[in-house]
């Protein structure tokens, strides 16, 4: 798969998941900016990471503003924001990435060669502006009506080559 197709597939998967499960229509932005520039400096971010292995191995990651999580959790679970606890918020972020990663793989991996691990939550303290630079790989930049998100993929090993 070439890089362009991979990024398009990732965008499609992200859009499908956020729209279907979270009622968040999104726009995929065609930009080459850095994660530090994409997110406002004042924003606290949270996220999730999800490893995969198969013909290639690596990980997906999802980054979003902490302030957005309550709202999407409320949409996801169909309960009022006041009723939501921290565990539910973290689980929603992890499950979002689980669905995005799984959906993306299902769009091209007909043979089931890839396997996903269990997603892990990334705390605010691990996503400060300086630490965002540690996140490598290819990123799609997403906008909802009020927020910005990013979904990335880091390939560490394997024969999943794409043009850079």
């Amino acid at each position: 798969m070439d890089r362009e197709t991979m990024m398009k597939t990732m965008g499609e998967a992200t859009s499908n998941v956020l729209d279907t499960m979270f009622y968040q229509p999104v726009q995929i932005r065609d930009t080459n900016c850095s994660l530090q520039k994409w997110f406002s400096r004042k924003q606290l971010l949270v996220g999730a990471t999800l490893s995969f292995h198969g013909p290639s191995a690596g990980s997906f990651y999802l980054l979003l503003p902490a302030t957005m999580v309550t709202g999407i959790t409320s949409n996801f679970l169909g309960i009022e924001e006041e009723e939501i606890n921290e565990e539910q918020k973290k689980d929603t972020v992890k499950e979002s990435l689980n669905m995005i990663g799984g959906h993306m793989l299902s769009l091209f991996d007909k043979e089931g060669a890839f396997k996903l691990d269990i997603p892990e939550f990334i705390e605010e303290s691990d996503l400060t502006e300086d630490k965002l630079g540690d996140l490598k790989g290819d990123v799609i930049f997403i906008e909802t009506e009020e927020n910005r998100l990013a979904v990335g993929i880091q390939i560490e090993t394997g024969n999943w080559k794409f043009d850079t």
Partner: peptide, 12 residues
């Protein structure tokens, strides 16, 4: 009820 949607996984 799963994210794993490959034909192979469904068949399995």
């Amino acid at each position: 009820v799963t994210t794993e949607g490959s034909e192979k996984r469904i068949q399995e």
